[in-house]
Amino acid sequence: MYSEKVMDHFQNPRNVGEIEDANAVGQVGNAKCGDIMKMYMKIEDGIIKDCKFKTFGCGAAIATSSMATELVKGKTIEEARQLTNKAVMEALDGLPTAKIHCSVLAEEAIEAALADYHERQGLPFEPKKHCDGCCGNCEH
């Protein structure tokens, strides 16, 4: 059902935990649906120096959280905001159709943490435009 990469990130998740002096924290999902992701970041000079997560959810939810933290660590805020759920999925060698929403949640968790950072810094934050993927101008 799951790729080897998904199983690896599920069994040996990278960057699990909290960052005590995080300056960006975002949480998405809800317990009723069975998925909650919480992202912690330490951002310095516009660069994500550290990123950790805590997740309540299925194997795919844990694996996508783990992969998302790996993909944004060391990146600039702008680069991290380019991260799509598709990129997370590709990095994991794919996900079963029923689990695609887990990768969307991972993208949203990163976005929520970055929104929190901007709010704390008193900086403007333009939320990502939600698209239905029909224009063909982006990777969605």
């Binding site: 799951y2 199983m7 599920f10 069994q11 069975g34 998925d35 309540f56 959810g57 299925c58 194997g59 939810a61 844990i62």
Partner: peptide, 14 residues
């Protein structure tokens, strides 16, 4: 409480 069943099954399977 506080954990999800599928994750539990995968860990047990391992």
């Amino acid at each position: 409480q506080y954990i999800e069943g599928e994750a539990l099954l995968l860990r047990l399977d391992a």
